[in-house]
Design a protein around this nucleic acid. Structure first.
Lengths: 207, 207
DNA sequence: GTCTATAGGCTGATAGAC
DNA sequence: GTCTATCAGCCTATAGAC
């Protein structure tokens, strides 16, 4: 028994090493440049060895995505304790932008890459605690609009999920254009964000 | 002279044929699947022949982008005649969304693909009439906010280019998430668009 | 468990015959 | 101008030796 447990630990260890290497390559060269050979080089094993720990490249990509959504959630989660939903919206928006700008490769991977990986992982319903981080992040946003409604200061009758979708798409629009066309948008990101958030909130209370 | 002109026409003809085939493959299989061999198969020439008409794959990609921006401009241009800037904004937004949803492969190519191609072409300043279509499209948006200001009904003091950038990023956000995560956003595109536009305009006149 | 070696595929691009 | 043939490289994944 003790021996098989040691083997399990050994296996998990190399698995994590593979993922770490894959993550680093993705960050450095982009997801398209992530190949089994490069991973093998990085961990100093033969390419074939990787297949003892992961079925194929896709499985690695999916794990990488899952990890990416978790990182995002870790960045957004702390804002959940802010009591006022308006303050909280600004805080989460700011955290989201910071995450995207600071982790461009990860952001691209989890939101701008092949739907084959992203779509499946994002839509995962949380089962155990390390699952469904994408959904949980989205829920943080929905809750904010629920709380705004509870405060009774929203003159718009759209439901919270809808408002969350609008706000999220706007955030993603800023980020993805900044990442795809560095230099085209002349307005700095923070300014785009504040103007967007201001007009959005003003619109909510007036529309 | 007459003979060399005929040769020129001949050359232009095959060049266009190559681009048409490339376009079709991109639409059908996606840009990543666009290869010289597939183009050659489609036009029924040997792969090497293409290199007599284009220097390499990148040059074809860039032409494809240029063509894509032109198609987009053709869709947006007709809205320019609408006198009221508020009506015009709704019309251009709607046309933009329709274009993206109806031409997903082209939209991906010109706004969501490799910056290597997109960035260069989008940032082109119009020189002759078939150039800089990306910039011209963006200018259509800027003009709308100029006109709104002239009407004096904007209580926000951001400049027109900035407002155009915000609005464009929001449009792009909706579209790109719809394309990357089909099925995740539960709200239909038109509803996201109207709610976004409504809150945005309400915000502009109130903020 | 890990290696070497390789199958079997794809790619962009080029050389040289016709 | 177009072809055939090919180079040189990349890729994923697997088989079989150790």
């Amino acid at each position: 028994m003790g021996s098989s447990e040691r083997k399990e630990r050994q296996k998990a260890k190399l698995q994590q090493q593979i993922l770490d290497a894959a993550r680093e390559i993705t960050i450095r060269d982009g997801f398209a440049a992530l190949t089994m050979r490069k991973i093998a080089d990085a961990i100093e094993y033969a390419p074939g060895t990787i297949y003892l720990y992961f079925e194929n490249r896709d499985e690695i990509a999916i794990q990488l995505c899952r990890q990416g959504y978790q990182e995002l959630l870790d960045c957004l989660q702390p804002t959940a304790t802010i009591p006022d939903p308006y303050d909280r919206l600004r805080a989460i928006a700011s955290a989201y932008m910071d995450f995207g700008l600071a982790n461009t490769a990860t952001y691209r991977l989890i939101f701008m890459e092949d739907p084959k990986f992203t779509n499946a992982v994002l839509s995962e319903v949380p089962i155990d605690s390390s699952d469904g981080a994408g959904m949980k992040s989205f829920q943080l946003l929905v809750t904010i609009f629920d709380d705004m409604k509870a405060k009774g200061r929203l003159s718009i009758d759209a439901d919270s999920a809808r408002l969350a979708e609008i706000f999220w798409t706007s955030l993603h629009g800023i980020l993805s254009l900044k990442l795809t066309f560095p230099g085209f948008l002349t307005t700095p990101s923070e300014e785009l964000l504040t103007t967007m958030t201001d007009t959005f909130l003003a619109g909510l209370s007036q529309a």
